[in-house]
Amino acid sequence: MFKEYKYPREAYGKTLRQLGRERKDIVVVDADLSSSTKTKFFADEFPDRFFNMGVAEQNMVGVAAGLATTGKTVFASSFAMFIVGRGYDQIRQSIAYPKLNVKIVATHAGITVGGDGASHQIIEDIALMCALPNMSVFVPADNVETEKIIRSIADYRGPAYVRLGRSKVPTIYDQSYEFQQGKASVLREGDDITIIALGIMVSEALIASEELEKKGISARVINMSTVKPIDREAIIKAAKETGAIITAEEHNTIMGMGSLVASIVAENYPVYVYKCGIPDVFGESGDYRELMEKYGLTSKNIIKAAENIIRKR
């Protein structure tokens, strides 16, 4: 179904480097993980605008804020577990509250980090970042969308959080795709049910939708890459037109995108919502595909959920 698989974090590094060529105000900080987050692409070409802060994420976030007060557009990167986990208070006090122009681009989010295990697998970052006033939250579905989102957030002044994974993901979009902040992308039309997915789960949703079609179930697929501000209209429309929603994300089912969707549906047009995600447990070491199987993050889980919902009608 998919022709190529690529690393979104590589698209991030290349886009950052290109932005560095185009704009003098782009500055990047990292915490000893630049070869993994791919900010190294930028660092190698612009050593005067790149600062490695060592294994000290709290300070890195504060430094990013300080740089932003001097008019810079600052990208701060590390593994999601560490920049969000260790740096949460600094993100809150020094970036979100003063609404500074810092873009937190975190890689290696979710259980698909794989072998490193639960210590490195953040499953609660969407919850933490969405609950911060002034913060926008984005989860690109592939390398193309990563580039579009990075360019889009570089163009507005204010805080943003971008969540990227470690692994390769199938390329879904071509270069003609136009990303718009706060606007969901409908990848497939459908009338019986809607699957709203994020990140690596978007390709799983597309596979599920194709399989469901063979079984006579028409499933709409929406990529909700802007988690905040979320596209309420697309959610309410899906509830009205398809009567049920399945959310799919590599995040705790508690307080993830699924919870946001469910609350909007409950307030506006109550229909059945099933949340496909990590069931409030810590992950473990393993190959990322094996982990997705074990923790219920595959097209099969989406298909099963859809069939159950349709059967109950």
């Binding site: 890195m60 504060g62 804020a65 300080g66 007060t69 001097t70 810079k72 600094q90």
Partner: peptide
């Protein structure tokens, strides 16, 4: 002090 470091780098 972290903020100050950022300002000084700026």
């Amino acid at each position: 002090l972290s903020i100050a470091v950022g300002m000084a780098l700026g």
